[in-house]
Design a protein around this nucleic acid. Structure first.
Lengths: 386, 386
DNA sequence: GCCTGTTGCTTCTACGGTGAAACTAATTCA
DNA sequence: TGAATTAGTTTCACCGTAGAAGCAACAGGC
């Protein structure tokens, strides 16, 4: 079970679609795969054989449902050998690198963080290489590295511009590849999270899907036809000009009443500080709001209504089958989720279906996991597609 | 050149893609087609041969550009014989039926309107059959009929519910087919317009495309991956709950400050009437606003700003490559287009690309043309796909 | 005028992926 | 124990495709 990643890379189109279907949708029998992919039973025997021989798939002993007793020969589900390959994901912030090791299924099996003393690209690459080395000891079969960075990334390799890291035109993928010898994929952090959720998370199998992240900034990712719509020009300037409440608060960052002003953690803290003169953490503010303290309750209430309007707009105009709210700043859903849902309702046609809204408070390891998922994609699909 | 539509219907997947490419993107040489469809030159010879033999395609004598002198054997462009088939499109309103005859290219070659005395389905079908008969005399090779109806349409055949026509569960396609013997496609009018624009109009060849219609109501059509996203549940209730100006006007129809209140023809006239006590036509109001008359100028200005916000939202969240404004109520673009564009800009990130906005004041014949285009699609693609 | 280079299209052939049908395998049920 | 049922395999014939070679039609240089 030692790795030689290239051995299963040259997959034919048919094999690839089988691999992806099993990878994303869990154990599936050949018959079920034939149904889903619209192929004949014979083709499935042919396509699965090399995948099993290469060790990517295995026959598993009939997934858990002995309750359902059916007549006839029992099916023989196939599953990916999730542990056969490992992937590393990094999320780089201004002062820390967060790292995870995941399986082929994008399950996190290890975490490792490291402070950043310098933002010099070479030194950052050194840190990543050291972390990789450390992780290699514990996890065999490392097949690739994914790196998520806030900023504009080109060709999944070069950081064209990152205001947070003060980088311009840094060939990060090459720097890390040279130090580790592993294939490296670099991507904008939001984009990576969106891809990961599309393949392995809330957006699994969906055609139209939106990820909205709230944290230090606002992130927006649109998926259609199972593919993320690229939006090269914007990167993370999202939400600065999405005016949700024309007479909303004025903050240091973002237009008056914009999504950024109303929803980002920094600006919510700023509003509380401006109103009370005291500095509170985001969690404290949520707790105060939940307890009914007037100031925080007002700010959080306003944020919830703004979020409701935002979600309604997304649902009305992009028509996704599901919207995922992610990031560190979606805690307000717990405190004011009902306000959000109510606001969504008033901004939607009564006959339109309820918006499938999923909330996932994510930490930096989730962002790192997103980057690792990208490495999985590239390895399975080959560098070309996606 | 007489018709037997079925003769070229059983197209293979390859032939169909060639037919569509030529149909939608004008005369193309075999080499150019090979490039676009990613096929070999040999395949193109094979695929085009039966299409030419069946009379769907012809070789045309090198399209107009003698300026461009290239070395080597000149290419031999192929084009559809647009006149080889005719299609009828109908748009049914509460008091009129608007009809057009189009070519395969969706060019209108004739128009014919008829008042409706009764809304009884059978009598309406009688009128349509009569009009069809009349049109048959002048235009040979009639291959199909498309019908656009405001309301909810199922399976492209049955009008499930139309508040305008007071219909429920009317099998209109069957009624008309039985009377004419021609294949009939029924569709919601906005959906038909969207399809037509996607194939033959502003959205030609685009992946992501939005049509926003303004008239008696608001219509919204989203196209992704070249396909219209179905939105069965809503039909034409669009925009009633899209709040664009929270303190906007209150009207008989639509929520306060909604797109419907601010933009539809009826509600703009209502606002002017409420303010001045006098009744004006939409065109008169636009003229008054253009002349600077305070009341109309204010209402139209407010409408333009609302439209700008709406367009910005669509651009921000659905990220289309182009937005088409259509319908009878887009005349305000001529009067206040700059206000719209300016408002769009302030609601978008400065680095995001300008929204490709196209305006097309359409009359009822354009709606009928949309329905005819649907008939073309169904005939070329076969009844299954789309 | 003629040769050459270039580009477009056609013909022919070998190949690979596909489904249909016949067959084997493993189970339930009577 | 055998019939019915469902899963998976093997074999084979069939297309659709690309690739190579060849033919066709033009421009440019001599």
């Amino acid at each position: 079970m030692t790795t030689h990643a290239a051995s299963w890379l040259p997959l034919s189109a048919g094999e690839r679609s089988v691999a992806i279907e099993v990878l994303v949708h869990g154990p599936l029998s050949r018959t079920e795969l034939a149904r889903r992919l619209d192929l004949s039973a014979g083709s499935l025997t042919r396509l699965t054989k090399p995948l099993i021989e290469s060790g990517l798939l295995v026959e598993v002993p009939e997934a858990g449902t002995p309750a359902e007793v059916r007549q006839g020969r029992p099916s023989q589900p196939l599953d990916v050998v999730a542990e056969s390959r490992s992937f590393i994901g990094f999320k780089i912030t201004a002062d820390m690198v967060y790292g995870v090791v995941t399986t082929l299924r994008s399950d996190i099996v290890a975490r490792l963080d490291r402070p950043l003393d310098s933002l010099d690209p070479a030194q950052v690459a050194d840190v990543l290489a050291e972390m990789t080395k450390e992780l290699t000891h514990a996890h065999r079969g490392l097949a690739g590295i994914g790196i998520g960075v806030g900023g504009l990334v080109e060709d999944r390799a070069v950081v064209r511009e990152s205001p947070f890291l003060l980088w311009r035109d840094v060939p990060l993928a090459e720097l890390v590849r040279a130090r580790t010898g592993l294939p490296v994929v670099v991507e904008n952090d939001v984009a990576a999270l969106v891809e990961a959720e599309t393949w392995f998370g809330a957006g699994r199998g969906l055609d139209r899907f939106v990820v909205l992240t709230i944290g230090a900034g606002i992130g927006y990712g649109l998926v259609q036809g199972g593919k993320r719509v690229p939006n090269a020009e914007e990167d993370r300037g999202f939400g600065r000009h999405w005016i949700l409440a024309p007479d909303g608060p004025l903050t240091p960052d973002g237009e008056r009443g914009s999504a950024v002003s109303l929803l980002t953690i920094g600006n919510i803290r700023y509003q509380i500080n401006a109103a009370t003169g005291r500095d509170h953490s985001y969690e404290e503010i949520l707790a105060l709001a939940a307890a009914g303290t007037p100031g925080p309750a007002r700010v959080i209430g306003e944020a919830a209504r703004a979020l409701g309007i935002l979600v309604a707009h997304i649902a009305n105009f992009a028509m996704p089958q599901k919207i995922l709210l992610a990031g560190e700043g979606v805690g307000l859903m717990e405190v004011a989720g009902h306000t959000v849902e109510e606001t969504v309702r008033t901004h939607r046609h009564p006959l339109s279906p309820r918006v499938a809204l999923e909330t996932k408070v994510s930490d930096f390891h989730d962002w790192a996991r997103g980057a690792a998922a990208l490495a999985i994609q590239v390895l399975v699909l080959g560098p070309a597609q996606t």
